[in-house]
């Protein structure tokens, strides 16, 4: 599974109240949520991300609430994958469960610049940027199966049919 695109870069501790404020949590419609993704930081985020981007961030990306709308909003806004130095546990699972690839890459914010074009191998965790090949942590096992199905709902449907 290869995803690629230009980078939008953020710092440490991007929390779920930044990713999608609580006032939008009464709905799960992806399009609605996507328009409010990262709103407190950048109300124009969804316009900038709409052509398909890879987010690069520092530590504890997605910390805070369990709101699954955080993963839904980013994906709907156009985020194709997130590369971060570390992820909050719940967000990481929510991303996988909604078919959004998440790669842990130490020093990601030092190695990758805003606007650079990156190519991510989701299975191996390899991130190609310019001439550099960076080694992140890939997705494997059941998490990869869920991701390949596009999320947990699709995965559950498939497993229950078997």
């Amino acid at each position: 599974m290869i995803v690629e695109g230009p980078v939008m870069k953020f710092g440490d501790k991007i929390d779920t109240d930044i990713i999608i404020p609580a006032r939008y949590l009464k709905y799960t419609d992806p399009q609605y949520l996507g328009q409010h993704a990262m709103e407190p930081l950048d109300p124009e985020f969804y316009k900038k991300a709409s052509k398909g981007v890879i987010l690069v961030a520092g530590k504890a990306f997605g910390m805070g609430s369990s709101r699954e709308q955080a993963a839904i909003a980013l994906k709907a806004a156009g985020v194709k994958a997130i590369i971060a130095e570390s992820f909050a546990r719940i967000f990481f699972r929510n991303a996988i469960n909604n078919g959004l690839p998440v790669i842990v890459l130490p020093n990601a914010t030092k190695e990758i610049n805003d606007g650079e074009y990156v190519k991510v191998n989701v299975e191996t965790g390899e991130v190609i940027v310019g001439n550099k090949v960076l080694k992140g942590k890939g997705i494997s096992g059941m998490a990869l199966d869920i991701l390949k199905e596009g999320g947990l709902i699709e995965y559950l449907k498939k497993v229950s049919v078997k």
């Binding site: 805070g64 369990s66 709101r67 699954e68 993963a71 719940i90 699972r93 469960n97 947990l152 559950l156």
Partner: peptide, 24 residues
Amino acid sequence: DSHTTTSGAVGAFAQGLGASDIAA
């Protein structure tokens, strides 16, 4: 809900999860 860790107060292993995980 992320604050599920609260039940750790009585010695339970308690974790918050997203809606899909909780449905499963």
